[in-house]
Design a protein around this nucleic acid. Structure first.
Length: 408
DNA sequence: ATCTCACCTAAGAC
DNA sequence: AGTCTTAGGTGAG
């Protein structure tokens, strides 16, 4: 397995409020990121393998390139030559900035949503840094077709199988083959439905096979991409207020997606939001429907909106668009994450912090002054019962002082 | 327009 | 051990 190249770790300054990969990569918007080692996330993207890890000030990234021919890979974005970075690292940095969608000021958006919505304000603090990724639209489409009546773990397994059997091989890591995501053409071949059924896709096998044929053969080249929001992000929220059902381009994209097999309103909205850049798309699943009822008094009134019909679906979306504005789908994803079972530990975790000032008098008379911070994360059952405890002790400040001389 | 089912599968709850 | 429910829904009647 000759010479695949691995870059050095490089870093980008990013705070946890702007992006938290632990939450963002697990909250069900992408299904291919894997945690291979402690806090290290890996995924194949655009013909290379990307690894990410994060500390409180920086995002660190590393690229593994396929053995040969890496120069024939089309760069995802052309960038200006930089004196500091090798051209490939610069490409990867551009790819990352694009994929992670780093332009929107998430801190400002959280503040804005908190100022208009007390429920958001209450739930958001433990779910900072939930950012909507700019995923490939086709990948998002297939991933969310798989998501019906399904859970994140199984969706991830299915998508993984899809890549393994139909996606182009990129490289091996620890003898494990890593494949990229298959194109519509890769999946528009005879026998796909039967094979996917064998692979455990169930009734979604037919949806994927048919949708792949529609996209690859019955739509013009570039059709899916043409549905993308091309506006560059503009922070000012008081642009002409958002139309009731969202912008024209969003409605068009949504309508077009509904023509595909296995794509209903919810899946179409997931693709609009996470694959096509339409921030006002609000996917309403049973979960969000429950949130709407529980926290926003939906369906309480006189019989209207009793169940999640198409009319109710649209009304819920409109309500959240009106409340949160142009990036309603982003805010929706924060509350969605806050309701996921895989993150439920955070909700009953309380954090206790003890700070001790310690002074040690040394023999030479100087005083060593340090602050010992003991941080305990307690997983609670009810009010008093502690199920689990994680302790983190660190010496935060430490300095020597010359002994003060007593005045006589 | 709204409602009811069937549809794959695997894991957890009774 | 079986049965039921649930997990980011969709399509057909």
């Amino acid at each position: 397995m000759a010479s695949m190249r691995v870059s050095e770790w490089r870093k980008l300054p990013v705070s946890l409020a702007e992006l938290c990969i632990e939450t963002t990569l697990r909250c069900g918007q992408s299904f291919r990121w894997k945690k291979l080692r402690d806090n290290e996330w890996t995924c194949a993207l655009h013909g290379r393998i990307l690894s990410l890890k994060q500390d409180s000030t920086h995002l660190h990234y590393k690229t593994t390139w396929p053995p040969v021919l890496s120069h024939t890979m089309t760069p995802p974005l052309s960038g200006h030559a930089s004196p500091d970075l090798p051209i490939e690292d610069e490409q990867t940095e551009n790819l990352l900035k694009h994929y992670l969608n780093l332009s929107p000021d998430l801190t400002a958006l959280y503040e804005q949503w908190s100022s208009v919505d007390s429920n958001f304000k209450k739930r958001a603090p433990k779910f900072a840094g939930v950012r909507i990724l700019k995923q490939d639209a086709w990948e998002a489409l297939v991933g969310f077709i798989c998501s019906s009546n399904n859970n994140i773990v199984r969706i991830s397994q299915m998508v993984n199988n899809l890549c393994l059997h139909y996606g182009p091989l990129i490289a091996h890591i620890d003898d494990q083959p890593i494949h990229d995501f298959p194109s519509p053409e890769d999946l528009a071949v005879p026998g796909v439905e039967a094979r996917l059924r064998e692979l455990g896709f169930g009734y979604r096998a037919g949806y994927i096979a048919k949708t792949a044929i529609m996209v690859a053969k019955e739509r013009p080249v570039g059709w899916l991409e043409s549905l993308r929001n091309t506006e560059s992000y503009n922070g000012s929220s008081d642009q002409k207020s958002l139309p009731d059902g969202g912008r024209e381009g969003y409605r068009k994209a949504h309508d077009e997606l509904l023509q595909l097999q296995g794509v209903g309103p919810k899946v179409a909205d997931c693709v609009c939001l996470m694959g096509l850049g339409w921030g006002e798309a609000v996917p309403v699943d049973t979960h969000v429907w429950q949130i709407a009822q529980r926290d926003y008094k939906f369906g309480n009134g006189k019989g209207k909106h009793k169940s999640l019909t198409k009319a109710t679906y649209d009304a819920v979306g409109d309500h959240f668009r009106q409340l949160w504005g142009k990036e309603a789908g982003w805010a929706h994803s924060v509350l969605f994450a806050a309701d996921l079972k895989i993150f439920s530990e955070r909700l009953n975790t309380k954090i206790e912090v003890d700070v001790d000032e310690v002074r040690i008098k040394k023999e030479d008379g100087s005083i060593l002054e340090s602050k010992v911070v003991v941080k305990r994360e307690l997983v609670m059952e009810g009010q008093d019962e502690v199920l689990d405890e994680k302790k983190d002790i660190k010496v935060e400040t430490s300095r020597s002082k010359r002994a003060k001389r007593r005045k006589l």
